[in-house]
Design a binder for these strands. Structure first.
Length: 257
DNA sequence: ATGCCATATCACATATGA
């Protein structure tokens, strides 16, 4: 069973690419981020016509997450995180699908730092960890997948110097990510590619894609019951090079069974 | 400090992104 995460940077602009990716790679479950559309305007019919059931948590103009499942509709468990009722960003949706608990996560970018956006990022990461601990206590196979906007290690970025002041690799961002891993979650790409040099994002600017100047910010975190079934973890890098591509590439895990 | 590119919206200018 393959479970993927894909920040598509606008589902309307990316719809042909999304349908093509679903058709070519046939993921069993796909977590999307940055759908950038309201609940009312989500292209549910196009996705159903491609053979997928879907739940989504939209927002006009930016943010927005969804979970797709081949041949069935995910059973929603919750949308949004506790701890900050005034937070109206659509960044989290969670469902039970094909025997696995799956979350689609769009973690705040946090730039510029320092500042209120960075503070929001760190608060959001604490709220995510709180939810992850609740899921952990349920002892279900679980995958927390999405755009974490965190470069975990220096080996996960093309240039430490170029990104040194970016919110994505500040010590506080890394520490918050490490605390979640410290609770026992397995970073699937890290576990299969410990040497690093695996990118999931390439900026549209500064010729980043042709230079292969990327970094790793899209992550799949596995609970022990899911990690026990981990066969492979990869990036569909090819899709970053196509016409009208997202700046992220699809990233996925293959689980036994 | 800003633009570089891209997507979006009360669209020909501005917010957001990473």
């Amino acid at each position: 069973m393959r479970i993927a995460t894909y920040n598509i940077n606008g589902i309307k602009a990316r719809l042909p690419r999304l349908i093509e990716w679903l058709s070519e790679t046939q993921p069993d479950v796909a977590c999307l981020q940055e759908i950038k559309t309201s609940d009312e305007t989500f292209p549910v019919k196009d996705i159903e016509d491609a053979g997928y059931g879907v739940i989504w948590h939209g927002q006009k103009g930016f943010n927005g997450v969804a979970i797709l499942a081949r041949g069935e509709t995910p059973v929603e468990v919750r949308r949004g995180l506790d701890g900050e009722p005034e937070d109206e960003h659509s960044r989290y949706i969670e469902a039970d699908v094909k025997g696995v608990r799956v979350a689609s996560i769009y973690l705040p970018n946090g730039n510029p730092q320092p500042g209120p956006k960075f503070d929001y990022k760190l608060r959001w990461m604490k709220r995510l960890r709180d939810r992850a601990q609740q899921i952990w206590a349920e002892e279900v196979p679980a995958i927390l997948a999405g755009d974490y906007n965190v470069i975990p290690r220096d080996k996960d970025v093309y240039s430490v110097k170029a990104m040194a002041d970016d919110a994505l690799m500040q010590p506080e961002s890394r520490a918050a990510y490490r605390r979640i891993l410290g609770d026992g979650w397995t970073d699937a790409i890290l576990s299969k590619h410990p040497a690093g040099g695996v990118w999931t994002f390439w900026d549209y600017q500064m010729n980043a894609w042709p230079r292969d100047a990327g970094f790793r910010i899209d992550h799949l975190l596995l609970s022990p019951a899911a990690a026990d079934r981990l066969i492979d973890a990869q990036v569909d890098k090819d899709f970053r090079g196509r016409e009208k591509a997202s700046d992220h590439a699809p990233t996925w895990v293959e689980l036994a069974g």
